[in-house]
């Protein structure tokens, strides 16, 4: 266990040392305030509220889980797998007395970690920004609800992380893996327009499942079904990825 922990810390150190990661996390922290400026212009100029302060964090979460976080996840996974396989730095990780299942797990844990951090930052920052907006119906109920929504949003993001790791293992070039991950993601999103029945069985259909957690109109059964689906996808891609990684010749 402590080896897995150490390996995870290592992956985290590498992730944090990359400018891209820092840039994306900074972006997540800044975006809610840029959004706030846009909303205020809308409010003062056009006169529409667009958001109650209480709803703003969840509206921001929509954008976060649609674009920013998936991109950050793809970026991290591409660097960790395709990138390290490509420049062979992966060897310096593998020739240590840590088996490859643990290395694979540590990389995914680091991806989960950066995703969770992104969500936490997004929540704090958008909640802070929302304090500058009117909340006619009170804001503290919204804070609790948005906290729940941000926590729930981690589930589909984690599933996306396992898919992205799996895809990335097919490449030996970080930018290639990134480009393909983005393309696959966009394609999966667009499939919904052509074949809605298929789209329901893609994890990408549930990046906004946090919407189901708010308002309380959706049955527990529905949430359980989607959770079981996302968990199933996660396990399938995790085990397949782990197996591929174990067999990888470097």
């Amino acid at each position: 266990m402590s080896l897995l922990m150490s390996a995870t810390i290592n992956e985290w150190v590498k992730l944090r040392a990359r400018k891209k990661t820092v840039f994306f996390l900074a972006l997540i922290a800044v975006l809610p305030f840029l959004g706030l400026m846009a909303v205020q212009r809308l409010q003062n100029g056009v006169g529409i509220a667009a958001f109650s302060g209480a709803d703003y964090p969840i509206a921001f979460l929509g954008g976060l889980t649609l674009f920013v976080l998936p991109l950050l996840i793809f970026l991290s996974a591409s660097d960790m797998f395709a990138g390290e396989l490509g420049d062979r730095t992966i060897r310096s990780v593998l020739v240590r007395p840590v088996n490859r299942y643990k290395i694979f797990a540590s990389k995914l844990l680091a991806i989960f970690g950066v995703t969770a951090l992104g969500l936490l930052l997004g929540w704090i920052s958008s909640t802070a920004a929302s304090l500058f907006m009117d909340a006619p119906d009170g804001r503290w109920g919204g804070v609790a609800e948005s906290a729940l929504a941000y926590a729930a949003a981690a589930v589909p993001m984690f599933a996306l992380g396992t898919v992205s790791a799996f895809l990335s293992l097919g490449f030996r070039n970080a930018s290639g893996a990134l480009a393909v991950s983005i393309l696959v993601y966009a394609a999966a999103k667009l499939v919904a327009f052509a074949f809605p029945q298929i789209a329901a069985f893609l994890p990408t259909a549930y990046t906004d499942w946090h919407q189901l957690w708010i308002g309380g109109a959706v049955s527990f059964g529905k949430i359980a079904a989607i959770f079981s689906f996302l968990l199933g996808c996660g396990i399938v891609f995790y085990t397949s990825g782990s197996y591929l990684f174990e067999k990888k010749e470097v």
Binding site: A200, F201, G221, K222, A224, A225, I226, S228, F229, L231, G232, C233, G234, I235, V236, F237, Y238, T239
Partner: peptide, 13 residues
């Protein structure tokens, strides 16, 4: 994993 996915399909995901 597949069992979980299948369950969710039967649960009407």
């Amino acid at each position: 994993g597949s069992a979980l996915v299948a369950t969710s399909a039967f649960a009407g995901i």
